[in-house]
Structure formats: structure tokens, C-alpha cells
Design a protein around this nucleic acid. Sequence first.
DNA 1: TATCTTAAATCAAACGTTTGAACAGCATCC
DNA 2: GGATGCTGTTCAAACGTTTGATTTAAGATA
Lengths: 196, 196
Amino acid sequence: MANNDCRANIIAAAIPLFAAKGLNGVSVRELARAAGENLSMISYYFGGKEGLYAAVLTEQFAVLDKIEEIERTDIDTLQKFELYVRATVSRYRKSPYLLRFYTSELTNPTACFETITKPAIKKVVQTLLKAFTEGLSHEKFRDDLDPADTVLALAGMINFYFLLEPVTADVVDHSPDRDEVLIRHIMDIFTRGVLK
Amino acid sequence: MANNDCRANIIAAAIPLFAAKGLNGVSVRELARAAGENLSMISYYFGGKEGLYAAVLTEQFAVLDKIEEIERTDIDTLQKFELYVRATVSRYRKSPYLLRFYTSELTNPTACFETITKPAIKKVVQTLLKAFTEGLSHEKFRDDLDPADTVLALAGMINFYFLLEPVTADVVDHSPDRDEVLIRHIMDIFTRGVLK
DNA sequence: TATCTTAAATCAAACGTTTGAACAGCATCC
DNA sequence: GGATGCTGTTCAAACGTTTGATTTAAGATA
């Protein structure tokens, strides 16, 4: 019953619920019950269920903005890609629901897709593209590779690993202890693929 | 009028609707209206909305069973992986909603996940794993690579390309004309990564 | 006759949203 | 200082609508 805990409580409770069941899979009553707050607080603070979903999505995707730092960092181009992979893994570890919102919006887009999801993902892709063309101009990378295909391949390797966790959990060890091995593994394949 | 058109009509209309909005995003009334069939037919033929969803999912994932052919084919191990990539692209071209069901079930699993989705995907992963260990025994592949990480990386490259289409459509040409280039590109990176 | 299809009606349950009353804290004013 | 109005917050209750499912009775098909 504390003062403005209410708003934060609702968001905190909504994150795992929306992540697991999607926007249409959760009812406002379920959200309110999980938050331990009154039903009408959702309309009061967020203007309704969709507003709450938008707030959750914005909060989740806020971390993606840090990708810009890669552009400003003065390191070897190839290391920028490693930095991206590392940042991606670390993001998924810190906010374990991010990938769910990410792919859920991609496959079953809501009203938030154009305004929140698409710009957030696009910024990541464009940052990677910029890094690749930089590597090209330094004549470090093969010039017969399509830039977009290449960076999407890298992004696919790391993201798909986490996306398939529900299926591969009993075949692959997904514990954070193995993250370093995974990162080196992916960077190994990628490096051999793009270097001259 | 015609005999079993009704059942087929309902399934055909349900595929794009379920794919776009998910199980909870569509109502039985919307499904019946889109199929041009009576509301009661959904309960009659499928026992309800979830039964229809299960039928749609089963039909969509039926194509994935063809992956087994890769094991029986007597070709070079590396070509088996190319066959997989080709088959994946061709599948997504022929049934453009498959990937949606695929990832929607991964991120927002329904009751069908354990019974339908998980076994279907698992079979693909295990087939790829078998092909990799085969390549290992022939001493064609590097033996310092983790088999699971490697095949997941390949699957990630090709699947993520299609998954991100809604975001990258204005940056990347996703037309089937470019499929051959994409396949060669991914196989190029993969080959350099795994060969001794 | 037996199977299939239709339209309409009905059901309880759940849906998202709104309401009006209550309550706190905090200025303001006589 | 005590009454007053104001603002932001919380609440239980109810709003009207839609949900998925079922049933009915009539018609079509083969």
C-alpha cells in the first residue's frame, strides 16, 4: 500500500507474464493479482492493458540503446563484433525476458511494433552494418561478402542459440558458465568467414 | 455443400490468422467468418479452438519430418548441411507461415509445445548433430568445435534471416531471386568455419 | 436413413474499462 | 487552529461487451 510503489509493482509483475503469454495471453485481472494491486490501477497509470504493455516494452528495449557505444569505441573492427556478441549475451543474462518480447513482437506484432520494436532492432542492425563497412574500408574483410547477410548471420548465430533454449536445454548446457566458450566459438566461425 | 471442404476451408483460413495473431489473438467467430463456414463447424470438426490450433500446427510441422531424408542420403557430409539450408529456405518459401508458428511456440508456448513443437524441432537438431559427428569421424571437420554450438550456429544464420524480415525488409532484398546467393553466402561462412 | 451443414439462440464465464466513494497529504483562508 | 478545498492515489463494485462452447431445429446430401 506504499505510495508510488504501485506503478513499479505492476510493471515488475507484468514483465514475466507478458513475456510468457504475450499481450493477449494475460488478462488485466491476472496482471493485477500478480502485482498485488488493484485492478483499476492499470487503467489509472497506463491508460489500459495496451499502455502497460507499451511501458513494459519500452523498459525492456531501453538496454538496446547502449549498442551505440560500439560505434564510438575505438577498437579493432572485428573486436566491435565481439563486443556486440558479448553485449548480447550479457543482456540476455541480465534481463532474461528480453528475447521473448523481441521475437514475440517479430512473429505476432502488436501496435507497438512499428513505434517501439522495429526502431530498436533496426538500430542494432545498422550499427553492425556500419562496423562491417568500416572493416571493408580498412581492407580487413573479404569484399565479396554481402554486408547485410553477413551481420545478420552473426546476429542469427547468437540469438538463435538463446531462442532455441526451450528445445535444446536437455542437449546443450545453457548455463552462464559456458557463455565464454560460446562467444569464442561463434566469433571463431565468424572470423574465419569474413577475414581476408 | 461439398463433402469435406468445410474442414479444409477452416484450416486454410486459420493458418494466416493464427500465424499473425497467435492462439489467443483470434476468436472462433473471426475464424469462422474468415473461412466462410459456420461457427459450430469448429467445435464439430476440431472440438474447439485449441483443437483447430493443434490441427494447424500438426499440418505446418509435417514438412519438418522430411529432414530425415538427409540421414539416408549418401552425399558428402558438408553437402548434407547445404541440403538442410536449401530445404529450410524452400520450406519457408512454400509455407510462408511456418516460421511464425515455429517461433511463436518457442516464445509463447501453448499446450501444443511439448507434444508437437518440441519433438518436431528436436528431430531437426538431432539430424544435424548426427551429420556433424559423421563429418568428425571422417576427419573432415575441426575436432575442437562443439557439435551442438556449431549446428545451432548454422540453423541460426538461416532462420534468423527470415525471422528478421519484418525489420530488415527495407534494407535487405528478401525476394526468392536472391535465395541462391543467400544459401551460398551462409554455406561459405559455415564451411570456412568448420573445415579442417 | 445416416451424415453433414446451416443459422440462430443460449449459456456461464471472462474480458477491458469505468465509476463514485474513500483516503491521504498539503496548501489556503478566516 | 480548525475548517476548507484541492490533488493524487486506492478501492470494491459494477459496467456493457465479447469470449468459447453448446444446443436447437431445419435443411441438404448421398
